[in-house]
């Protein structure tokens, strides 16, 4: 389980090629397509970071918007004082500390407590930030003025996505990943072979939260003007859940399959029928539960399996 297999090398090569091709996008277009590409890469990064935790644990985290908002705020507050890379590190630290604390408070208990806690978390942090800003600072909004173009942000996000993938791969090969597989099989056995399952889950949630905060930080220059309602928009949390589950959560790259079509669809619907976007989310959730519980990846695997079985039969 420690040696690198041939399959892994092949996947690595594919990834290098894919990333190289994607990195060329800003050279082709600087307008609408790049902007759309940026949104897609943002959701790919968010979903991958989300699946890092929610995939193996099956805990539905709705805290994405909270960590994302924290990240943007770190940049909003510090941009005039500190260099951007340092702000990214600070965002990771704050995201990690907050997710770690939330994890310690909730992950010892059943999944429901965790979902409820994360459900209102973006709103909670938004209220606290607004309160601090109105009472202790001069205004609510923050300007983030940088020299970054959309292309720069796109490249940074793409690089971060690669980093998240590598992290996920390393976790999978580590004791932590092994522990998560055992927990996923049987939590009683896990405890009796010496695994502190609460600690493992907290650690994973911490890593995921830190990455999400960094994604928020990278995107701050795109917003240029940051205020609590847009930075802590709960919609982000729900979209990430839908896209990830739509793709599938058993592998890190499965969410990709959900992100691209759903981003396009949601972008179109919310532009043309802004009042109908909630209905779309509702339908998406119901669709996932009733028709594609294993995600599109599960569907695809099912079809290919049936296909190869048929093939075998015709060969006999």
């Amino acid at each position: 389980m420690i040696k690198i297999t041939k399959d892994e090398i092949r996947i690595l090569l594919y990834m290098v090629v894919a990333v190289a091709i994607l990195a060329c996008l800003p050279l082709l277009d600087q307008g609408y397509i790049l902007s759309l590409g940026l949104t897609i890469v943002m959701y790919v990064a968010l979903c991958t970071a989300w699946v890092l935790f929610s995939g193996p644990t099956h805990y539905i985290s709705l805290a994405t918007a909270a960590f994302f908002g924290l990240g943007t705020y770190v940049v909003g507050i510090g941009i005039d004082v500190l260099p951007f890379p340092i702000l990214l590190i600070i965002a990771a630290l704050i995201g990690g500390v907050v997710s770690g604390l939330v994890g310690i408070a909730t992950l010892r208990l059943s999944g429901v407590y965790f979902v409820i806690f994360t459900l209102g978390m973006a709103e909670l942090i938004r209220q606290i930030v607004t309160w601090i800003q109105t009472n202790f600072t001069t205004g609510i909004g923050l300007y983030v003025l940088t020299d970054f173009s959309e292309a720069h942000i796109y490249w940074m996000l793409l690089a971060l996505t690669v980093l998240i993938f590598i992290t996920g791969w390393l976790i999978n090969r580590s004791r932590l990943g092994f522990a998560m597989r055992i927990i996923g099989n049987d939590e009683t056995v896990a405890a009796h072979v010496g695994i502190d399952s609460a600690k493992a889950k907290v650690l994973l949630f911490l890593i995921s939260g830190a990455y999400i905060a960094v994604i928020g930080a990278i995107l701050a220059p795109r917003f240029a003007y940051i205020e609590p309602p847009s930075a802590f928009n709960p919609m982000i949390s729900f979209l990430v859940v839908i896209m990830s589950l739509m793709g599938g959560t058993r592998t890190l790259w499965a969410p990709l399959i959900g992100v691209v079509p759903f981003t396009l669809l949601f972008d179109m619907v919310s532009a043309r029928f802004p009042n109908h976007s909630s209905i779309l989310l509702g339908i998406a959730f119901l669709l996932i539960v009733y028709l594609i519980p294993d995600g599109l990846i599960g569907r695809i695997e099912g079809i290919t399996k049936r296909f190869s079985k048929k093939k075998e039969r015709t060969h006999e």
Binding site: M1, I2, F178, A179, G194, I195
Partner: peptide, 25 residues
């Protein structure tokens, strides 16, 4: 209580990674 999605050898290894006497790799 077997861990169904793990291979036979990984089932055994699971007992020796996190417990009293630890090993890896």
């Amino acid at each position: 209580k077997i861990l169904p999605t793990l291979s036979v050898i990984d089932n055994v290894i699971s007992g020796g990674v996190f417990g009293y006497h630890r090993m890896w790799g």
